[in-house]
Design a protein around this nucleic acid. Sequence first.
DNA 1: GACGCGTGGCC
DNA 2: TGGCCAAGCGT
Length: 357
Amino acid sequence: MVPLLSIKLLDWFNLNARILPWRQNPQPYRIWIAEIMLQQTRVDTVIPYFNRWMEEFPDIRSVAQADQVDVLRVWEGLGYYARARNLHQAAQIIQEKYHGELPKKPEELRSLPGIGEYSANAIASIAFNVDLPTLDGNISRVLARLIALEAPVQDKISRQTLLNFASTLLPIGHAGEFNQALMELGALVCLPHKPHCDQCPLIENCQSFTKGVQEKIPQKLSKKNLPHITATAGVIWQNHRVLIAQRPPKGLLGGLWEFPGGKLEDGETLEDCLLRELKEELDLPVEIDKKIAVYQHTYTHFRITLHAYCCHPLTHPIPKPKIQPAFYWVATSELSQFPMGKIDRQIAQSIFKESLC
DNA sequence: GACGCGTGGCC
DNA sequence: TGGCCAAGCGT
């Protein structure tokens, strides 16, 4: 027996579902890639990345066989780069352990790097129509409003309550549509701010609307203020080439390339900071020429003001590529081949276009 | 369980 | 314009 609420939701979804690339041709591989890209990322942002990914990597084997630099290059700009590294690793595991086919069992999906509780059930239900509920930000908000859940949805007890509720609503044989319908309703109607309750197919079932508390649910957790750091980076020139370094394989912008530099310490001038960092990282004394630009950027957990300078080496021999940390001297025309975060890409663009220094 | 992890868009 | 996110995962 399918609850009336679920019937209304599925009917609404049939009429209002957006046409999206991964819905046009819902192969398990495409669903998997879409789910990973959509983690913490808007649909409009994902669409061009998804399409380009499918051109570069049409199947799991092509991902597994790719070099990490090519995977990161396609991912550049999408953020949370561990997703790309995990996708790459997962593709290789699928090749070796699952004969190149995405596994269907939720627990096997869950064991792959980058696939957690949400994604395992989302992929199993959407790609393989396994009858399982799942919780993401949208679904949690929609369900919490339906039952006027006052506790934060992140709480363990809340999550269990919402998952149990979802289970009672789940239409057997249609879990994939049901989960997508809840997410779509959350994305298009049951918005975090100013939800469009007048357009909602579930308005008669919504305890929050009845009580007029839909804007207060789900309860928001207070956020901490972001610390602010100042840093420097050097564009070091030698024979019409510049030096770029690869970041450590994990952590912030892991595996991406950057112009070397680092954080400003207490009582240090910007120039002192840059000279110290280049000495520490590269054992390279330089002359600082002129400032290129100052960049402001906000990451998830801190803000940064980065001062970029043109530099020239003072000694020979100049450093040669090593293994980890790797670094290269590259022509400005080659910079686009190396995946970079936002700030370093801006620096690379400006020195390429304007031939600075 | 808390924290680290990107970016672009919104008002 | 700065704060607040937006289809979470790994440690």
